[in-house]
């Protein structure tokens, strides 16, 4: 009998069968740690010896000219692209290079795409419902019911992203800015430890931009937020620490004033803008 039990308890025999549920270890400070990461597409080095550390609770802006490798970097962190060399750690326990996209998402990395992608046929409420951090396997999803605490959580996020009155509207009819917020809201439902936000204010009006800035700064501290953005005014309004990417590696890092006075940075990036 005991042999039988041991046989059925395969999770404990093979470590790799155990579900990834161990908490993210951030005792040493960084929540994301990328070292010597390189990836090339057909000989083109999109990421070249990238070293990047994000601290727990930090709000970090990443800027860089087109083709600097910002989106590729996000692809690597979320498991969409595998780097050729280097290592990527989430906390000091989870090696992201061995995990797939849903596992990484479940572990606590949420990603907002450059182009807002929400589920247009579903309502705002349903969009948030699907994103909620719950058991996402097939049968639990099939039998899932709407519990009061879930609804509370959704209402909370609806309030935060300012879409309370539109909860029953199909997401397809939302304006561009509202879709961006909904997507950020969906990330929040996942209760992520780390939010990767790709160009959150592209195509937004001034007011919408301000609201987004408020939203993102209010998140920092509870979550770590990494924002990739082109809009320098926006970056200036939210950033405490800025990393400049150029040709796939870090060119400069520091406060906005520091990097904007860096002659190298001025040459490759700000020089063209100003």
């Amino acid at each position: 009998m005991s042999i039988f039990q041991e046989l059925t308890n395969r999770d404990q025999v093979f470590e790799f069968l155990a579900p990834v549920q161990s908490p993210v270890d951030v005792r040493h400070g960084p929540i994301l740690y990328m070292e010597d990461v390189s990836v090339s597409f057909d000989g083109f080095k999109a990421i070249n010896n990238l070293n990047l550390t994000i601290d727990d609770g930090e709000l970090r802006c990443i800027i860089g000219p087109n083709g600097a490798g910002k989106t590729t970097m996000m692809d690597i962190i979320t498991g969409k692209t595998r780097p050729d060399t280097g290592s990527v750690w989430f906390g000091s326990r989870h090696n992201l290079l061995t995990m797939n996209e849903p596992d990484i998402a479940t572990l606590g990395i949420g990603r907002k795409f450059q182009k807002p992608t929400v589920f247009e046929a579903l309502t705002v409420f349903e969009n948030l419902e699907l994103a909620m951090a719950t058991d996402k396997r097939i049968f639990p999803t099939l039998t899932a019911t709407m519990k009061p605490e879930y609804r509370e959580r959704i209402e909370e996020v609806l309030e935060m992203i300012g879409l309370k009155d539109l909860r029953n509207a199909p997401a397809g009819i939302l304006s561009h800015g509202q879709k961006q917020w909904l997507e950020i809201g969906m990330l929040l439902m996942q209760k992520p430890r780390l939010l990767l936000v790709d160009e959150p204010v592209a195509g937004m009006t001034e007011q919408e931009m301000e609201r987004t800035a408020e939203l993102l700064t209010s998140l920092a501290g509870k979550q770590s937020v990494v924002v990739v953005e082109h809009d320098m005014g926006f970056v200036r309004s939210i950033a405490r620490k800025v990393t400049v990417l150029h040709q796939g590696s870090v060119l400069a890092e520091g406060s906005m004033d520091q990097v904007s006075n860096d002659p190298e940075v001025v040459k490759v990036y700000l020089g063209e803008e100003a």
Partner: peptide, 17 residues
Amino acid sequence: RVSVACRDAEARTRFIG
């Protein structure tokens, strides 16, 4: 609803887990 999500935005569905 997850099926509809897969239909309309497969990558997004994957990234929410």
